[in-house]
Amino acid sequence: MSPRLYRTLKISAEIAVPILLLVAWQLYTLARDDPKFPTPTTIAGEFQDLFLFSQFDTHVVPSLERIFVGFAIAVVIGVALGIPLGLSRIGRSAAMPHIEYWRAIPPPALLPISIILLHSIGNTQKISFIAFFCIFPVLLNTIDGVRAIEPTLIDTARSYRIPTHERIRRIVFPAALPQIFAGMRTSLALAVIVMVLSEYFSSTDGVGYVLLISKNTFEFKPMWAAILLIGILGYLLNALFLLVERHVLAWHRGWRAATPQ
């Protein structure tokens, strides 16, 4: 097969498959004529009505805010705890059983208690709930990243008598950063899930709220529009994250490419 033909086929496949799926979906839902399964065109229309842009502030902004703030808090706490734990074997022995216990609990199990403890279903409750679960991927990956630091780098730091705070800031943290980013990526995906869950369970606004209300009122069009929005949000957040990662970890890609491992 010539390279040109291969390339044409490849691009055609990339474009054609989603289009074909959409067309098939449209035809199927038209034929079925069931209010529970609206056509893609209907969903797109509803999507525009709801989220672009009249209700953008009402629903999309609160949801995004909860994701961002919850995620940011989780990253700060995860790294702040992960670095000392990565450096101390005694610390790890003490902390790991507790970490493993709490991280194993699925988010739905802690929803009621989160609401009861904080006496609210508002932003603080949502954000702290999201942050709690998003800490674990960052924390565990930070610990792993710190433990895996090249011993020669540490020997170098010791032989040049570099003080501890400088070592952590300029050696330990950057060395662990690729692994930390891997943890952050998982946390971000988790943040979207936990956000939708906590809003769906009980809230007064947000994308999950749209899901909740449309379920209660048997309005299927907003439900599908919300599903579409959540998918788009997840996709865009991940793309944005990768963009940031590519910039921050440019040195890491270059180093891996140049150094035989």
Binding site: T152, S159, H252
Partner: peptide
């Protein structure tokens, strides 16, 4: 411990230089 007026050069240069700097 590592004394102040002493410097060490390691065999594995790729592992003693910081790749992010």
């Amino acid at each position: 411990g590592p004394p102040e007026r002493m410097a060490l050069v390691f065999q594995e240069y790729s592992r003693s230089l910081m790749p992010w700097m």
